[in-house]
């Protein structure tokens, strides 16, 4: 079976900034493919090229077998996009927005009404369909956009940061829809996110992107498995000293300090915990708390990029590159 998306050395540069740097990615039909990375990692630029909004500087890509440059119109007809920022007309009703989309994407007039009713049911907006969008909540708008992206039966659906700025309940709701969509519509979903839990819960496979490059690609479970084991998080009055001691005496090199807590990645946390306590006591370090947990994608990201995903949040969103990025949107 051909790939739903295939990119070859896909690159986009802005002056000296390589927003996307020689990406080779193949997305299988029917999977939810997660692109995970901090803000400014190049996720949106990458997706914009696949959606034919931006032209690549070099390299090539196909979406549903169509070349993104030479067959841009065919690509457009075969994909659905939910943008990072809202892109609906809030002076029209929900239903009117859907009708507009159906017309723009060439859905046969005879099928429009039925498809739209089905979509409204799917995203549970039937009772609000004829209200102006300005009266919708953020979550409802998002759901409408999700539904809108499906009206023309796309084979690939792009979701660019679908739950940014939404409250936890609504995020949960949206996630549920995305999973349902995949089952009921038999489509490929490309999801970009900088939320670890989102990527973890939704994706069949995850590509970690940093500085425009792919760092690693695997299933969420395997990514977590590569970390081999548990994370022991210790809070103490002198975590730096404790970190040194742990590295020196217990031989655990994978230590890091996150939000004032020492985190040690080990194969068997239960056995290690008493020894850490002992070591702390011998060196007059007072341990406030010690917790054992499973590694999450946050740890995976740190492991592969050497930094915490949140450290970078917003960092590159100043000055000229920010202006360019806004222009891309």
């Amino acid at each position: 079976m051909p790939h739903a998306i295939e990119t070859k050395q896909l690159t986009k540069t802005y002056g000296s900034l390589k927003a996307v740097d020689s990406l080779d990615i193949a997305v299988e039909p029917g999977e939810i493919f997660g692109l995970l990375g901090p803000n400014g990692a190049g996720k949106t630029t990458f997706v914009s090229m696949l959606c034919t909004i931006l032209k690549p500087t070099s390299g090539s890509a196909t979406v549903n077998g169509f070349d993104i440059v030479r067959e841009a119109n065919k690509v457009r007809k075969s994909i659905g996009i939910v943008f990072q920022d809202p892109s609906i007309d809030d002076r029209l009703t929900g239903r009117e927005n859907l009708f507009m989309h159906a017309n723009l994407f060439g859905v046969p007039a005879s099928e429009q009404k039925e498809r739209i009713n089905r979509i409204l049911k799917l995203v549970e907006l039937e009772d609000r369909a004829d209200d102006l969008l300005r009266t919708y909540s953020g979550g409802m708008r998002r759901r409408l956009e999700l539904g809108r992206g499906l009206i023309h039966y796309p084979k690939v659906l792009f979701l660019d940061e679908p739950t940014v700025g939404l409250d936890p309940q609504t995020r949960d709701h949206i996630w549920k829809y995305i999973k349902e969509l995949k089952q009921t519509h038999d489509i490929t979903v490309v999801l970009t996110t900088h939320y670890m839990d989102e990527a973890d819960r939704l994706s069949d496979r995850i590509a970690i992107i940093d500085h425009g490059k792919m760092v690693i690609l695997d299933t969420p479970q395997k990514l977590k498995d590569t970390l081999e084991g548990d994370v022991v998080a210790v809070r103490a009055n002198n975590v730096n000293a404790l970190a040194e001691l742990v590295t020196k005496w217990l031989g655990f090199p994978k230590t890091k300090i996150v939000d004032g807590a020492l985190e040690i990645t080990v194969r068997n946390g239960k056995v290690v915990m008493p020894r850490i306590m002992e070591l702390a006591a011998q060196n007059n370090i007072y341990v406030e708390s010690i917790v054992l947990r499973e590694p999450n994608l946050e740890d995976v990201f740190l492991h592969y990029t050497g930094r915490n995903i949140r450290e970078d949040t917003g960092k590159e969103l100043h000055g000229a590159s920010a202006a360019r990025r806004r222009a891309i949107k």
Partner: peptide, 16 residues
């Protein structure tokens, strides 16, 4: 307005 509130994108990525 359409550019600022994003709706222009919806139009521009359509096959029209």
């Amino acid at each position: 307005w359409d550019k600022e509130f994003g709706f222009m994108k919806e139009i521009l990525v359509s096959p029209v």
